[in-house]
């Protein structure tokens, strides 16, 4: 499955993704949709747990961000923005507490899709049943990306993880709001091209800082991409070429910036202090 194939599929793109995946796996569309429905319910559950809890993570670096934002007054009067950010961080704070979440496509990037897709759906009062097919499309976009590129931070840097989740979320939100197959794929491509180069420098090696806030930022990034694509803006570089470019940058990225905690934020004095404190535990 390539982004070009999805782009050229009849709209809605998710239908083609579903049919071609079922052909490959031998599963029926009903089974895949049912599995997707249960994934959405799991995502919602993790959002709710995360918004309600201020319990600290493994290291104590995060744990109260989602609830803190959710309970705070909306100074910008931008309820969609706040909802998307809070949902995304809720999932990643649950993840950082070793709670139960849905990897999408990875655990470190698990908040992006629930943040963007559930956030937009709740804002517009769209039911979870209507999210099943957009979620199928998100999975198809992720599959297309993973065919050309490793999606782990260790192999490709943060761009590979959060770039993938943002691209998947962007396509899903675009389809949810009636975007064509072409618009969905261009939303994904724009999300990806604007994530190229992002390094993976987790403090202490933990999936906490910057991962939790990063999911808030890239859930918004996905919604921005959908906004542009729904207005018929497109990526100048063809979508599959964008993936190749990101894969190339990933290969050029030094090992220190690929989840090893040997560069960037992880090597700041404060970052090193966290590493030392956790090692002495």
């Amino acid at each position: 499955m390539t982004l070009d194939e999805i782009l050229n599929a009849p709209s809605p793109a998710s239908q083609w993704v579903l049919e071609s995946d079922c052909q490959a796996s031998g599963l029926t569309p009903e089974i895949v949709k049912e599995a997707m429905r249960s994934r959405i319910a799991e995502m919602r559950d993790s959002v709710e747990r995360g918004l309600a809890s201020a319990a600290p993570s493994i290291t104590g670096m995060v744990g109260w961000n989602a609830k803190g934002l959710w309970d705070a007054p909306d100074m910008l009067q931008a309820p969609l923005l706040k909802r998307v950010q809070a949902y995304a961080m809720a999932v990643n704070e649950e993840n950082a507490r070793m709670g139960r979440i849905v990897a999408a496509p990875t655990a470190g990037s698990a908040g992006t899709i629930p943040g963007a897709l559930l956030g937009v759906a709740d804002h517009l009062k769209i039911s979870d049943d209507d999210l099943v097919m957009p979620m199928v499309l998100a999975a198809g976009v992720g599959k297309a990306i993973s065919k050309q590129m490793f999606i782990s931070g260790a192999a490709g840097g943060c761009q590979a993880e959060i770039g993938s989740s943002a691209a998947m979320a962007a396509a899903a939100v675009t389809e949810l709001l009636g975007g064509s197959s072409r618009a969905c794929v261009h939303a994904a491509a724009m999300a990806l091209m604007n994530t190229i180069g992002l390094v993976c420098d987790p403090v202490g090696g933990y999936v906490e800082v910057p991962c939790v806030s990063r999911n808030a930022f890239f859930a918004v990034h996905a919604v921005s991409s959908a906004q542009l694509a729904l207005s018929n803006l497109e990526s100048f570089i063809p979508p599959d070429e964008v993936i190749s470019a990101m894969a190339q940058v990933g290969r050029m990225m030094p090992l220190e910036l690929r989840e090893t905690a040997e560069g960037g934020l992880a090597q700041t004095p404060t970052g090193l202090a966290v590493t030392a404190r956790m090692e002495s535990k």
């Binding site: 990875t106 655990a107 979620m135 782990s152």
Partner: peptide, 16 residues
């Protein structure tokens, strides 16, 4: 891609 449902914090370092 959407999944696995898993205990955090890392799909590669924990679930895998």
């Amino acid at each position: 891609m959407i999944g696995p449902v898993m205990i955090g914090p890392s799909s590669s370092h924990t679930a895998g």
